[in-house]
């Protein structure tokens, strides 16, 4: 088994923590794990991408080869679209948070943010499956916006082909969060899982 997962978004969305949770969970389950993190100027609003590679045999390199992602977890719509040619393929499953983080050049009106419907259409056309979920909206209903990353992880573990499940994630949370914050994060995972299970929104 070799499973290639990408978590993509922008600085400040909790990408690196989310990828660490996946990594630690996988190590606990006895898998070989390699996570490549790109976070150059990430705190300064730049794109952040984590390449997470789970394997049951040898060690893998820190970057996923071209078109090699099984799942792309998109914390931000345009950043998800950006990496499709590099890492997607016709079987890739996309789980995308619908909430844009507008770049400064978009805010300034110099360039246009892609229309959300267009993004969904493109991803549907060239993917195995698209799950388009309002993770930020649900996070804000639950507490701070940052919980979005945990809702997205909850959605991730509801995908059948993904080799970890919610119980596995739940078991690792106490290692990572102080006891007072665990409950909220468990809830966020559950919400994400439900969003995939009950909704199964897709445009195919």
């Amino acid at each position: 088994m070799l499973f290639n997962l990408i978590i993509t978004g922008v600085g400040g969305q909790g990408n690196v923590l989310a990828s660490q949770i996946v990594g630690r969970t996988a190590v606990k389950k006895g898998m070989r794990v390699t996570i490549g993190e790109t976070f150059g100027l990430s705190q300064r609003g730049g794109p952040v991408m984590s390449h997470i590679r789970l394997s049951d045999h040898g060690q893998t390199g820190p970057l996923i080869p071209p078109c090699g992602a099984h799942i792309i977890l998109g914390l931000e719509p345009m950043e998800t679209l950006r990496i499709v040619p590099s890492y997607g393929n016709q079987h890739t499953i996309y789980i995308v948070n619908s909430r844009p983080i507008y770049p400064l050049n978009v805010i300034a009106g110099e360039v246009v943010y892609p229309d959300l419907q267009t993004i969904q259409n493109v991803l549907t056309t060239i993917s195995g499956r698209l799950y388009w979920i309002e993770a930020t909206k649900h996070a804000l209903q639950l507490g701070p916006a940052i919980l979005m990353n945990m809702i997205m992880l909850g959605a991730l573990c509801a995908i059948d082909s993904f080799p970890l499940n919610r119980k596995d994630f739940d078991a690792v949370l106490p290692d990572i969060f102080p006891a007072t914050k665990c409950k909220l994060n468990h809830e966020a995972l559950a919400i994400g899982e439900r969003l995939i299970q009950s909704d199964r929104i897709s445009f195919d």
């Binding site: 609003g45 040619p85 770049p103 400064l104 246009v112 056309t125």
Partner: peptide
């Protein structure tokens, strides 16, 4: 696949400008 995907996204995906927090 890469060529096809690129034609679908390249004109609608602007680069993200760096900015202060």
């Amino acid at each position: 696949f890469q060529t096809h995907a690129l034609t679908l996204i390249q004109d609608i995906t602007p680069l993200r400008e760096f900015g202060f927090c």
